[in-house]
């Protein structure tokens, strides 16, 4: 299987951006963006779909860390 060329890459990135925008606008409800999800999956290799989904999680986590900062989990209430 040959790697996507530049126009295929662009098509994949564009549909990814549309899906991400839809998810942003709809509070990350996947069912609101099924159309975009379908286009994203048909325009990108399966491995890239997985990769970009993980990447979105990572970017969201990063954004959260940058805006809210890191909150350590609460430890045991009673010191043992």
């Amino acid at each position: 299987m040959s790697a996507p060329n530049s126009s295929e890459r662009k098509a994949c990135w564009d549909s990814r951006d549309l899906l991400w925008k839809c998810l942003d606008d709809n509070g990350d409800k996947a069912e609101s963006c099924l159309k975009f999800q379908g286009e994203f999956e048909s325009n990108c290799p399966a491995q890239w779909v997985k990769y970009f989904s993980k990447r979105r999680d990572y970017l969201q986590y990063k954004a959260k860390m940058e805006t809210e900062g890191f909150k350590p989990a609460e430890g045991p209430k009673q010191p043992s």
Partner: peptide
């Protein structure tokens, strides 16, 4: 690598 999704290109 050529199958690289976004960073390499």
């Amino acid at each position: 690598f050529t199958h690289c999704p976004d960073i390499c290109p």
